[in-house]
Simulated assay, not measured.
Amino acid sequence: MPEGHSVHRIARQFDRNIVGRPVGASSPQGRFVEGASVLDGRTATAVKAVGKQMFLEFDDDLWLRVHLGMYGAWDFAGQIFADPTIASANGRMGQTNQRGTTLPPDGDHAEGAADPVGVDERILDAAGENSLTSIGAPRRTRVHVRMSEQTTGLADEGEMWPPPIVGQVRLRLLTELTCADLRGPTACELQTPDEVAATIAKLGPDPLVDDVAAGEERFTSVVRRKPTSIGLLLMDQSVVGGIGNVYRAELLFRARQNPHTPGREVPEEIVREIWRDWVRLLAIGVETGQMMTMDDLDPAAYRAAMASRDDRHWVYHRAGLPCRICGTAIVVEEVATRKLYWCPSCQA
């Protein structure tokens, strides 16, 4: 499941490439035809991410809410520009269509805008965890289509624009320069401003949306009164926004906290440190596009970690392997249908 850093990167992608432009909307799959017809021809005016959900505003106070869930993803094609405040990303966030990028026609490149960047200029990620062109749930296939570097056209000779529909596209949003295809979301619906506010009110604090200090107090207060295990609380989006299976395992290991301890029994200073650590890790995830959770790496180790998830995490996906600290075999359990990785010695 895409975690909070991915959704914030998607929102920034929309802000750079979709917001402020009239949008053509369609539902090639046929499951969002009515909603797409309402959006078609409107101008996207704002976008925001909260936890694992994205809200895209259109004129006339109309909002599109998207929750990618376990299998959802966005594919981007055409002229794609990175947010200059975050690192350029390579590969894909586990998605199918890896279409290249190109500079816009003369005059369309706003002052201060980041140029699209070539894959050869970045640290390659074999798992495709970070991407400008595709962000969301993993896909098995990866198709490379290189875009032309000419400034007068969108694609190489023979490439179609708009790009052909590939797979089950719930919603296609199309500007003159950029195409965004949504596949497999848990939620894709239109909302009024009041409905958006009600949805967000049900979500826990998000360090990139809420005041960080106030978020810490809210998170600590909720966790410290709950009999539910801290491992489950971190996955509860009404408790804290954006944490998924990877960050849950890594945050608990970094705090040396047993995931089965009831929230109300976790020392307050540990609860606060988990929040503060989430603030740090979420910012790193948004900047790099990768769930980097290891600290104090030398340059060679850092490059290896950025290139491979196997070198990026303390416990996640390391069942049976020795703990990087104590050597004890990492265990994996199924808790509430999700896999929980932890070290029974360091987190005893």
Rank of each mutant, 00 (worst) to 15 (best):
residue 2 P to I: 13
residue 4 G to Q: 14
residue 5 H to P: 03
residue 8 H to G: 00
residue 8 H to W: 03
residue 10 I to Q: 03
residue 12 R to S: 07
residue 15 D to A: 15
residue 15 D to H: 14
residue 17 N to E: 01
residue 19 V to I: 12
residue 24 G to Y: 08
residue 24 G to R: 15
residue 26 S to T: 14
residue 28 P to I: 00
residue 29 Q to D: 05
residue 32 F to V: 06
residue 33 V to N: 03
residue 36 A to K: 14
residue 37 S to C: 12
residue 41 G to R: 02
residue 42 R to Y: 05
residue 43 T to Q: 08
residue 61 D to E: 09
residue 64 L to R: 14
residue 69 G to L: 14
residue 78 G to H: 09
residue 79 Q to E: 07
residue 84 P to I: 01
residue 85 T to A: 15
residue 88 S to T: 08
residue 89 A to E: 11
residue 90 N to T: 03
residue 104 P to M: 10
residue 116 P to M: 00
residue 118 G to T: 09
residue 119 V to W: 00
residue 129 E to V: 04
residue 130 N to G: 07
residue 134 S to D: 05
residue 137 A to D: 08
residue 137 A to S: 05
residue 138 P to H: 07
residue 141 T to L: 14
residue 145 V to M: 13
residue 148 S to Y: 08
residue 153 G to D: 00
residue 154 L to Q: 14
residue 158 G to Q: 04
residue 159 E to Q: 13
residue 161 W to Y: 08
residue 163 P to G: 04
residue 165 I to M: 11
residue 166 V to K: 09
residue 170 R to M: 12
residue 173 L to F: 10
residue 177 L to A: 05
residue 180 A to C: 00
residue 182 L to G: 10
residue 183 R to L: 01
residue 188 C to S: 06
residue 190 L to P: 05
residue 191 Q to I: 00
residue 195 E to Y: 03
residue 199 T to E: 04
residue 200 I to K: 00
residue 204 G to I: 10
residue 205 P to K: 01
residue 207 P to G: 00
residue 209 V to I: 06
residue 212 V to C: 06
residue 215 G to A: 10
residue 220 T to E: 00
residue 221 S to Q: 07
residue 223 V to E: 11
residue 225 R to D: 12
residue 226 K to V: 03
residue 238 S to Q: 08
residue 243 I to G: 00
residue 245 N to T: 07
residue 245 N to I: 01
residue 250 E to Q: 06
residue 251 L to D: 04
residue 254 R to H: 11
residue 259 P to T: 04
residue 267 P to K: 14
residue 271 V to M: 10
residue 274 I to K: 00
residue 275 W to L: 11
residue 275 W to P: 06
residue 278 W to C: 07
residue 280 R to N: 10
residue 283 A to G: 09
residue 284 I to H: 02
residue 290 Q to V: 04
residue 290 Q to H: 04
residue 293 T to W: 02
residue 294 M to D: 03
residue 294 M to F: 01
residue 296 D to A: 12
residue 298 D to N: 02
residue 302 Y to A: 07
residue 305 A to N: 05
residue 308 S to G: 05
residue 308 S to F: 08
residue 308 S to W: 15
residue 310 D to W: 03
residue 311 D to N: 13
residue 320 G to R: 02
residue 321 L to W: 05
residue 322 P to N: 02
residue 325 I to R: 13
residue 325 I to P: 10
residue 325 I to C: 12
residue 326 C to S: 12
residue 326 C to Q: 11
residue 328 T to E: 09
residue 330 I to Q: 06
residue 333 E to S: 03
residue 334 E to W: 02
residue 337 T to F: 09
residue 340 L to S: 12
residue 345 S to H: 11
residue 347 Q to K: 05
